[in-house]
Amino acid sequence: MKLSNNYPSLRDKTVFISGGGSGIGACLVEAFYRQGAKVAFVDILEAESQALVSHLQALADENRQHGAVRFYPCDLTNIERLKQIIGQTEQDLGAIAVLINNAASDTRHNFLDVTEEYWDQRMQINLRHQFFAIQAVYPQMKQLGGGSIINLGSMSWYESQGGMPGYTSAKAAVLGLTRGLARDLGPDKIRVNTLTPGWVMTERQLTHWVTPETALDIEKNQCLKDSVMPEDVAAMALFLASDDSKLCTAQNFIVDGGWI
């Protein structure tokens, strides 16, 4: 990992990340772990998540400055299970100071084929769990005297990307969730922001969606021609979670190389 910034305010804080087993989520888990935070993450991908924990524990053997990490298997469509894990995290690692609502699924789908059941599933996977995770961590953050909530958005709907209306609709709604709850939670010194990645070169994107044609489109549209990597998103998340961003709330922070 090439990130160089160190945020002392993150050391020993409990950070909860959804969808932390792969892609951007796995990078977030490692980034906060390297800051000395106590990181709890959930994912439906158990093998990948266990491998990440083993990797981080190996880092700890080399450098005692790292934090702690816990993985809890969870299907985020099961809200009761999510709430139970958030409560268990408080018992295991301490009250949650940072929540990162990262988990999502950008599976492509034709709008003509969408059923009511599939639409509801897209909302459950991409939006609903964000709200209920916030609701569940609120008492813990209030007890701490403040906290930082980071909701992952998407640049897809900004650029009118078609082929996945369930995903783009849910991700557009994330901004409304952020701004409304920033007002509600502000009196308790809990900050709520959206972090919007551009087209990030994760393994999933490279194997599923990035073709020679789309790669040219990405290069054409970004002001900065370097690839957006998971670490670029993690760098912004570290700042938004730290005390350095103590007066940043209700905002949308875009990391996309200048596309939108």
Rank of each mutant, 00 (worst) to 15 (best):
K2T: 13
K2W: 15
L3V: 06
L3M: 09
N5F: 12
S9K: 02
R11T: 07
R11E: 14
V15F: 01
F16W: 04
I17S: 02
S18V: 10
G19D: 05
G20L: 01
G21L: 10
G21D: 06
L28A: 02
L28Y: 09
V29T: 03
A31M: 08
A40Y: 07
F41G: 01
D43M: 10
L45P: 12
E48P: 07
Q50S: 07
A51P: 09
S54D: 14
Q57K: 06
Q57I: 08
L59S: 09
L59Y: 02
A60V: 04
D61P: 10
N63I: 13
N63H: 12
R64S: 15
H66D: 07
G67Y: 06
D75Y: 14
D75R: 10
L76R: 11
R81V: 08
I85Y: 01
G87R: 05
T89I: 03
L93T: 00
L93W: 03
G94Q: 00
A95H: 05
A97D: 08
V98Q: 01
V98M: 02
N101L: 03
N102W: 02
A104T: 08
S105I: 12
T107Q: 15
F111K: 14
L112R: 15
D113M: 15
D113W: 15
D113C: 11
V114R: 14
T115E: 13
Y118S: 15
W119N: 14
W119M: 12
D120Q: 15
M123N: 14
M123A: 15
I125K: 13
H129A: 10
Q130N: 14
Q130H: 13
Q130A: 06
A133E: 00
Q135F: 09
Q135K: 14
Q135C: 07
S148D: 06
S148F: 07
S148P: 09
S148E: 06
L152I: 10
M155R: 09
E159Q: 12
Q161G: 11
M164K: 12
G166S: 03
A170I: 04
A173T: 06
A173K: 04
V174I: 09
V174F: 00
T178N: 06
G180M: 04
R183P: 00
D184H: 03
L185N: 00
L185F: 06
P187D: 05
R191I: 00
R191K: 04
N193E: 02
N193K: 00
N193Q: 04
L195N: 04
T196V: 12
G198T: 00
R204Y: 12
H208R: 11
W209L: 08
V210R: 06
T211Y: 04
T211K: 07
P212R: 00
P212S: 03
E213D: 01
L216M: 04
L216H: 05
E219A: 14
N221A: 13
K225Y: 05
D226I: 13
D226V: 11
D226A: 15
L238H: 03
F239V: 01
L240Y: 02
L240W: 02
S242A: 05
S242T: 04
K246T: 02
Q251W: 04
Q251F: 01
V255I: 11
G257I: 05
W259L: 11
